[in-house]
């Protein structure tokens, strides 16, 4: 049994609802979940980036994951709905508060930019509308090379028949573009009733054109590699990582941790080894 993760639970201010969602996720066997905050930046209105609520505020006691003895891990994630490239400010310190950073591009140009330039982890694909652009192979391949993942969320499909058509259509075209690699399937659930068990999701992915193996990876190992990717984003090119030590010496810097450099293929100019999937390292 592998470790299942659901990297998208919609944040709601209602505390009891949030608690119920996390409880249900643990009951279904997800060992890591990420609470998602959506943010739509615009130039006219100066809005502040939402700051993540500490996990203690969301839930009293972390439930034990089904079939394991450890409590569930709760992360934070920010999704930026981009309508213009300038809205993405790469060096914003607020972004560093989140464990995962996702963008949802709305135009083809932005999709291209997100795949090739932006320092993010996840490219989210809108599931509630017909996509205004096609997925092109070239930017998708660059994104795969950089270790980004494309996200498909299934909750919209459960809610309503029209959404279901859009979701399946968008997902199929995405899967065809990236040949089933680096597709992340998450829930985007707002209510505990909208979550589904991991094995159901894996089988559901067959509707989207993923094979069984790819589908299983989309809820387990791709999530794991994404979390590692997110960590390297915070560190300098994945070579040096700094930690805030809460002890008596706050100034002391952590010793540089050299990450796994994947012997043999660390050619110059390619992304650090830790940023890529394990399978890509071996082939």
């Amino acid at each position: 049994m592998s470790v299942f993760m659901d990297l998208n639970l919609t944040f709601s201010a209602d505390r009891s609802n949030m608690q119920q969602i996390i409880d249900t996720a643990a009951y279904l066997g997800f060992s890591t979940v990420a609470v998602n905050y959506t943010f739509e930046p615009s130039i006219k209105k100066k809005e502040t980036v939402p700051s993540p609520k500490p996990v203690e505020d969301l839930i009293d006691q972390l439930p034990i994951v089904q079939g394991r003895s450890r409590p569930i891990r709760v992360l934070n994630r920010l999704t930026l709905v981009l309508s213009e490239l300038s809205h993405f400010r790469p060096n914003l310190t607020e972004y560093a508060n989140f464990d995962l950073l996702a963008v949802q591009p709305t135009t083809e140009k932005l999709f291209h930019a997100a795949c090739t330039q932006l320092e993010v982890d996840v490219i989210s694909v809108a599931m509630t509308e017909k996509l205004p652009f096609f997925f092109k192979r070239a930017p998708v391949n660059v994104a795969l090379e950089r270790g980004l993942a494309f996200e498909v969320s299934y909750t919209a499909a459960i809610r309503d028949a029209t959404m279901r058509r859009y979701t399946i259509a968008n997902a199929v075209s995405l899967v065809q573009a990236c040949k089933g690699k680096n597709v992340l399937v998450s829930s985007a659930a707002m209510k505990p009733q909208e979550l589904r068990g991991p094995y159901d999701i894996i089988n559901l992915c067959s509707l989207m054109g993923l094979s069984d193996e790819e589908a299983k990876r989309s809820v387990s190992s791709i999530c794991r590699s994404l979390l590692l990717h997110a960590e390297t984003r915070k560190a300098a090119s994945g070579v040096i990582s700094t930690k805030k030590s809460c002890g008596e010496k706050p100034q002391q810097q952590e010793a540089p941790i050299s990450r796994n450099t994947g012997e043999g293929d660390s050619g110059e100019g390619c992304a650090p080894a830790a940023k890529r999937l394990k399978s890509q390292l071996t082939d």
Binding site: Y154, A157, I158, Q193, R196, Y199, D200, N203, L204
Partner: peptide, 21 residues
């Protein structure tokens, strides 16, 4: 099966979901 959101019984509609084990 994941698209089941409720089951109709004679008395009322029960919102639920199936989780395959």
């Amino acid at each position: 099966l994941p698209f089941i959101t409720s089951i109709d019984t004679r008395w009322k509609k029960i919102p639920c979901f199936l989780n395959c084990l």
